[in-house]
Design a protein around this nucleic acid. Structure first.
Lengths: 219, 219
DNA sequence: CCCATAATCCAACGACTGTAGGATAATGGG
DNA sequence: CCCATTATCCTACAGTCGTTGGATTATGGG
């Protein structure tokens, strides 16, 4: 594939300006492959071919296969975290300007998040694959997801106010609801916190969500 | 494992009342393993050991490994579809009784869905794994998800009304939002429909969701 | 009782995998 | 110019995988 467009690099010590270049190419190729087909389905020979290098070169730069996988995650997650924290910082700065500015800032934060994932679907794929590994789940949740969730949850709390209702797009609503349920089940499987409380809170949330979007009859 | 508690079945033609029993045991064991670790990470020898039979017996009952995988999906998805359609039918019957009964029925439908997945986490795991396979995505979406989404979307439309707002649980809100975004990106990768319209609609949805839960400042 | 049937297991094959050892060649510093 | 350094590739190895052929043993029908 890549060996057609760019012939393989001949052996020899690289020049100073192109050091660490191969590692980056390998990481990018491996990230795309892992995101598309998962850890076990991807072979190191595929990664090497996609990067236009030999198998041994991959090992030389990134060590074992598991270490290569971790390196791909670290790269992608660092980028996501950086983008989100920057946007959250901007939103937090707008909190003091009143409820209107706060809600607008919240919209902006969500937009940044959506934009980021839309532009980098491999981030979503890697997140989901990692979430499906039971052992990794606790680490993922505590070290990465939970801090960001708390960050945005505080913003939500600070931006709380009252307002009106609008007509939603039903199909998008259902799909989002379904994914929210899946996320709930995955979080439940992680087993942090009281299981009964989690179930009660989530059920109340989806009911409120429907009420908020479609109107609670009792009000 | 299973060979300790229950010794392996000796060869020989089974009695009439225990026909098809082994196939069910194999499917259950394979479903649990596939849900936990994915297609490629699970070996047929593991499935055989978990079911307490030999590898060749697995092949004899379920054919190739891919066919075994498909059989596991078919079993799990059929159960989910059955439960959801029954609940949707009940909700649809309650639509004519006014907006209050309609919204209550909607809550009931969502509860059935949440209950089902909470009780069978392997369903969520298999769904997510299947969603991550690019080739399978179109089939999954068109033949299974889309009909159910449309079904519930029609219910939502019919149940639309106006009402009040409530204070949500921020952490649950954020997590659900994040999963909704992931679901959006996955749907985007499927590539059905206009990409620009999908992006616009989803962005509008999450904004309305925040407005509905926390109050739009303009109203 | 006897034989066709059917389910199970054993053994093995070919293919592919991750990984390591060692040869090769190009650069940078002296 | 010369040598240590470094990146790259080729080769090979042990292990595991999915799959298959055939032997073994119990059942059911005649």
């Amino acid at each position: 594939m890549a060996s057609m467009t760019m012939p393989r690099r001949r052996p020899g010590r690289p020049r100073r300006d192109e050091t660490r270049d191969t590692r980056e190419v390998v990481l990018a190729a491996a990230t795309a492959l892992f995101a598309g087909r998962g850890f076990d389905a991807v072979t190191l020979r595929e990664v090497a071919a996609a990067a236009g290098v030999d198998v041994a070169t991959v090992a030389h730069h990134t060590g074992t296969k598991a270490e290569l996988y971790d390196a791909c995650f670290a790269r992608v997650f660092a980028a996501e975290r950086h983008a989100l924290e920057a946007a959250a910082g901007r939103a937090r700065a707008a909190l003091d300007a009143g409820p209107t500015a706060a809600l607008t800032a919240l919209h902006g934060l969500v937009d940044v998040f959506v934009d980021f994932l839309e532009d980098r679907p491999e981030t979503t794929a890697l997140w989901l694959r990692r979430w499906l590994e039971p052992q990794r789940h606790a680490e993922l949740d505590q070290r990465y997801a939970a801090p960001l969730y708390r960050l945005v949850a505080e913003l939500l709390d600070a931006a709380a106010a009252t307002g009106a209702l609008v007509e939603p797009t039903p199909y998008v609503t259902v799909r989002s609801l379904v994914w929210a349920v899946h996320g709930h089940v995955v979080a439940l499987a992680a087993g942090d916190g009281s299981r009964a409380r989690q179930r009660r809170e989530f059920r109340a949330f989806v009911h409120r969500l429907l009420d908020g979007l479609y109107g609670a009859p009792g009000a």
